[in-house]
């Protein structure tokens, strides 16, 4: 059944994937199997996206399937040990309200085993600082789709520095407006304008690959 779930998920057969997952989750050890299989499927979808075979449309559909399946799978996982690679605080920076890309990246990062704390869109600089203090993440992810967000990221990183927290975390930036030059300009550690690459780099920053 795992193989069928994997196939139908990767082939974007929503009804079939959800149906199999519902069945599998009721079996002995099924919840863990569903979780692992869906993670594997998300990884495969990410690979196909990086290879240019899949597009944003598939990432959105896959993210939606993943969320649908997790909704009935996660409650059954309580008490199980679910390994986490580390924690990331993620938000779209102040002045910017785009969230589609951030949400895609979030699902893929979660599926890869990163524990993501999503602090939303149009996030004030200080809110990043508060979230870092509260959740003690290894990683901070910032998303930015508009040019105004570039200076917003820069300012956020300055405020994180002023709070004395910069050395405790690695910062990765993503979204349509980022590039190597922007990364250097704002003082981040890595950048990615595609989710699959972003997940790979995040794992590297966590020392997990």
């Amino acid at each position: 059944m795992r193989e069928e779930l994997l196939r139908s998920f990767v082939d974007m057969d929503e009804q079939e994937a959800v149906r199999i997952a519902r069945e599998l989750v009721e079996t002995e050890g099924g919840a863990v199997a569903v979780l692992d299989t869906c993670k594997e499927a998300m990884e495969e979808v990410g690979r196909l996206f990086e290879a240019g075979e899949y597009f944003l449309s598939e990432l959105i559909a896959a993210g939606d399937m993943f969320n649908q399946i997790m909704e009935f799978t996660l409650p059954k996982l309580q008490g199980e040990e679910v390994a986490s690679l580390g924690t990331m605080v993620l938000g779209t920076v102040q002045g910017d309200v785009h969230n589609i890309g951030k949400d895609i990246f979030k699902v893929m990062a979660e599926a890869s085993g990163i524990n993501v704390i999503d602090i939303g869109i149009d996030v004030p600089h200080e809110k990043f600082v508060e979230a870092i203090k509260e959740h003690k993440p290894e990683l901070v992810g910032m998303c930015c789709l508009i040019t105004l967000g570039v200076d917003s990221m820069k300012r956020t990183i300055e405020v994180i520095k002023e709070a004395g927290l910069r050395d405790d975390i690695k910062i990765i930036i993503g979204g349509g407006r980022v590039s190597q030059a922007v990364m250097e300009h704002v003082g981040a550690d890595a950048w990615a304008d595609d989710a699959a690459r972003g997940v790979r780099l995040s794992k590297e920053l966590l020392g997990k690959e």
Binding site: T147, V150, R177, S179, A181, V182, E184, H185
Partner: peptide
Amino acid sequence: IDVSDIISL
């Protein structure tokens, strides 16, 4: 020309 470049180069 990319506006990100106009800001950061």
